[in-house]
Simulated assay, not measured.
Amino acid sequence: MNTIDLHMHSIYSDDGVYTPTELMKMCKDAGLQIVAIADHNSTKAIPEARNAAEKLKLTYIPAIELDCTIHGVDLHVLGYGIDENNQALLDNAEYVKKQAQNVGKEQIEKVKALGFYIDEDACYALSHEGVITGEIIAEVALQDERNHPLMKEYLPGGSRSDNPFVNFYWDYCAQSKPAYVPIHYISLKEAVDMIHAAGGIAVLAHPGNNTKENLSLIDAIFAYDVKGMEVYSSYHSPEQIAFYKDYAEQHYLMITMGSDFHGKTKPSIALGGSHCPDTSLYENAILSLIK
């Protein structure tokens, strides 16, 4: 049974929908025992989640997911065992949020230029603190029947309908896609240094999404004192899990696991999931992350 999930998102991520307390109750109901909320560039969930987890007798690990870049590639790096009050982390959260608030309108215009009808007011109504994500644009687009001929893949029964909002983001709004609008993220080195200064360790999130099996890129990432890899992810195929597990073991990296549960933006992803067959193999190492 999978009893560990170290990657989920609360309302303090722009694309999360559950409060930290709600998430901890859901983790308990799912049979999880060791958990972490890793919100995008934010530590706001940690005090509430830690308190809720303690009441529910869950083991909680404070975490964050930092956006960063290396060699022009956007990455997500997880920081575990961090001090949520670290000033550099707090400053970076504001730095990213202000940029994200400014790019939403431009991204809407780029999506509209591709032939979609997008209600800007509806996007802002769904946003957190004025941050419009690709997933929000997708949700609004799918509500407008005029877009359905262009969005058959995302409608029920379509090839991208399992997680329609985030799939639309990956297909249209992610890096290198036609509606991509860049945000200037910190470098990988800055992210790792920030995590270390906050007392944590750095772990590469869902490499199957960002690095694929590009060994030269993966080697470059782990040259920056990244100590672990999220080998078990809801995004990884069995073949990818085997590839990343082998890499992690050869390089003496900590192996972690996470669902990347968000709620409605990724409805096919469940807390815990079935991507990690036996989390007990990694429990002792993961418990060392608790401060």
Results as ranks from 00 to 15, higher is better:
residue 132 I to D: 05
residue 131 V to L: 01
residue 103 V to F: 08
residue 80 Y to V: 03
residue 128 H to G: 00
residue 110 K to L: 11
residue 112 K to T: 00
residue 111 V to Q: 06
residue 97 K to V: 04
residue 128 H to E: 13
residue 97 K to W: 00
residue 128 H to W: 14
residue 100 A to Q: 13
residue 120 E to C: 05
residue 126 L to G: 08
residue 86 N to V: 01
residue 132 I to M: 08
residue 104 G to V: 06
residue 130 G to C: 10
residue 80 Y to A: 04
residue 84 E to V: 00
residue 105 K to D: 07
residue 97 K to G: 00
residue 118 I to H: 06
residue 113 A to Y: 07
residue 91 D to F: 04
residue 94 E to D: 14
residue 96 V to S: 03
residue 84 E to L: 05
residue 106 E to N: 10
residue 128 H to T: 13
residue 128 H to R: 14
residue 108 I to M: 03
residue 95 Y to E: 15
residue 82 I to N: 08
residue 102 N to D: 11
residue 110 K to H: 11
residue 93 A to R: 14
residue 100 A to V: 00
residue 124 Y to I: 07
residue 88 A to K: 15
residue 109 E to P: 07
residue 119 D to Y: 02
residue 93 A to P: 01
residue 85 N to W: 03
residue 118 I to F: 03
residue 107 Q to E: 08
residue 99 Q to S: 02
residue 122 A to E: 15
residue 86 N to Q: 12
residue 123 C to Y: 13
residue 114 L to G: 04
residue 86 N to C: 06
residue 112 K to V: 00
residue 84 E to S: 13
residue 83 D to S: 15
residue 86 N to T: 02
residue 125 A to S: 13
residue 97 K to I: 08
residue 104 G to Q: 06
residue 97 K to A: 12
residue 116 F to N: 02
residue 131 V to Y: 01
residue 97 K to N: 10
residue 119 D to L: 05
residue 121 D to T: 12
residue 79 G to Y: 12
residue 112 K to C: 12
residue 81 G to I: 09
residue 129 E to G: 00
residue 120 E to Y: 12
residue 129 E to F: 04
residue 87 Q to W: 07
residue 127 S to G: 09
residue 119 D to G: 06
residue 106 E to H: 11
residue 93 A to Q: 14
residue 86 N to G: 02
residue 108 I to Q: 06
residue 79 G to Q: 10
residue 128 H to A: 12
residue 119 D to S: 09
residue 94 E to K: 10
residue 90 L to F: 02
residue 102 N to T: 09
residue 102 N to G: 10
residue 126 L to I: 00
residue 97 K to P: 01
residue 84 E to Q: 15
residue 122 A to K: 14
residue 90 L to D: 10
residue 110 K to P: 10
residue 107 Q to D: 01
residue 106 E to P: 01
residue 101 Q to A: 05
residue 116 F to E: 05
